[in-house]
Amino acid sequence: MTQIEWDRIPMVDLTEELTFIREPILDKMTDVVDSGQYILGEKGEQLEKQVADYIGSTYGIGTASGTDALELSLKALAIGPGDDVITTPFTFFATAGAIAQVGARPVFADIEKDTYNIDPASIEKAITQNTKAIMVVHLYGKAANMQEIMRIADNYDLRVIEDACQAIGTEYNGKRVGSIGDIGCFSFFPSKNLGAFGDAGLVTTNQPELYEKIRGLRNHGSTKKYHHSAIGMNSRLDEMQAAVLLVKLYYLDIFLHKRKESANRYTENLHRLLKTPAVAQEQEHTFHQYCVELAERDELASVLDQSGIDSAIYYPVPLHLQPAFDYLGYQKGDFPIAERAAKRILGLPIYPMLSFQKQDYIINTINNFLANNG
């Protein structure tokens, strides 16, 4: 199959998705304009309740971004200087960055080679008397091993924050991620499975005291106007983004189903020739990213680029080797599984409106490359 009907296949095409839901989004946005309520209004409250219900949590608190959701969660748990928080070195920078921002120390634990999620056995080895929490990442939309992680947290009296920024709608043993630990954090960055028209995020919890703390902290430490019980931050989800997200949330399960269809099609056609994502019944995958693994990663990326197909590396430099974290004292070789994955993993285009024709072109391009480099 040749490339005949498009200039290039992007990693994510938000414009195609918008053609499907343009009118209801514009209607909701017009409601906001007409209301005169732009911050902490009715749409935001609706979104908080509907996302919490969807996740299976008691409470939802809108924030200005997924990164803020992580930082606010740490602050609500009174985590700061002198405290350690265990997390994965194989994720986006914001996870460990939020830990550092509150003055705590990110402590890394290696990942599982098949899921790329944090390895519970590695977590247990990293626990010290200074450890206060585990920040779990459900990477690429794949649920981490929450049964083991919660067991470890219970045994050592640790709090658990779920970084579910890539995994809204993902289930683990029948529960949606973000409802299992003490706190769940979500990002609504435009390219996420549930994406706004700018930055936005949300926190979920089942604990009323954490709900009240986070609700205040995201608004300068205030739940009553001009009365401040803590030093918080300005991290309020605005009404326009809430309006967009309310519409998109209605279609979320349909879009996740389309992602899974595309992922299954990739796997059926590629699994014999390279490593495709691991899928298990108890640890669902909603495919925010579809990543394959192979030794010739960079060569394949180059061929895809020359063929008019975008690809991306998630993530080329593990966090323990980032210059910003030099002060932690980690060295190359400390987390060999994460380091190996960083050299071999490649994300392929995946989004709800990815056509079979475009996907076949991607698959055929990859198969031709592998046939010539086998």
Results as ranks from 00 to 15, higher is better:
26 L>H: 11
221 G>D: 14
27 D>I: 09
6 W>N: 04
243 A>V: 00
222 S>E: 11
153 A>I: 09
152 I>P: 03
195 G>A: 02
91 T>W: 12
7 D>N: 12
74 L>N: 04
224 K>N: 06
112 E>C: 12
117 N>S: 03
225 K>T: 10
119 D>L: 10
286 T>P: 02
74 L>I: 06
149 I>S: 11
306 Q>A: 05
315 Y>I: 13
368 N>S: 11
245 L>E: 00
93 F>A: 14
20 F>R: 06
165 C>M: 08
294 L>Y: 04
264 N>L: 15
31 D>Q: 05
312 A>P: 03
145 N>I: 07
151 R>H: 13
276 T>F: 07
67 T>V: 14
329 G>L: 08
371 A>V: 05
149 I>V: 13
69 A>C: 02
218 R>V: 00
178 G>Q: 02
253 D>F: 05
140 Y>A: 15
26 L>M: 14
73 S>M: 04
278 A>E: 13
22 R>W: 08
95 T>N: 05
115 T>R: 10
33 V>P: 07
270 L>S: 15
117 N>A: 12
146 M>V: 07
251 Y>V: 12
157 D>K: 05
24 P>H: 05
241 Q>M: 06
253 D>Y: 05
72 L>G: 00
72 L>Y: 00
226 Y>F: 15
189 F>Q: 10
363 I>L: 08
103 G>S: 10
25 I>P: 07
282 E>G: 06
49 K>N: 12
370 L>N: 04
228 H>G: 13
345 I>S: 13
370 L>D: 11
249 L>S: 04
119 D>W: 06
197 F>C: 10
65 S>A: 12
61 I>P: 01
367 N>G: 04
334 D>K: 05
22 R>L: 12
290 Y>S: 09
73 S>L: 03
123 I>T: 04
36 G>W: 11
90 F>H: 09
255 F>T: 14
371 A>K: 15
96 A>N: 13
360 D>Y: 11
131 T>C: 02
363 I>W: 05
130 N>M: 04
24 P>R: 01
255 F>C: 11
58 T>S: 10
36 G>H: 03
355 S>C: 06
217 L>K: 13
75 K>T: 00
338 A>E: 08
92 F>T: 15
289 Q>W: 08
64 A>P: 04
44 G>M: 02
275 K>Q: 14
269 N>D: 08
243 A>Y: 04
122 S>P: 01
373 N>C: 02
197 F>Y: 01
88 T>I: 05
222 S>I: 13
177 V>A: 10
354 L>H: 04
24 P>Y: 11
237 L>R: 02
21 I>F: 14
141 G>F: 01
75 K>C: 01
249 L>N: 05
50 Q>F: 14
6 W>C: 15
138 H>K: 11
133 A>P: 09
133 A>R: 03
293 E>D: 13
319 L>I: 04
373 N>K: 01
218 R>S: 01
199 D>G: 08
97 G>L: 01
47 L>K: 07
200 A>V: 00
1 M>I: 15
64 A>E: 03
312 A>W: 14
372 N>G: 10
106 P>C: 08
23 E>S: 12
88 T>H: 00
104 A>F: 13
138 H>D: 06
62 G>L: 00
57 S>N: 09
362 I>G: 01
223 T>W: 09
276 T>R: 06
332 K>L: 09
261 E>I: 08
222 S>H: 04
5 E>Q: 09
297 R>W: 07
308 G>M: 06
82 G>S: 03
65 S>R: 07
293 E>T: 11
218 R>Q: 06
162 E>F: 03
251 Y>G: 07
143 A>Q: 10
318 P>F: 09
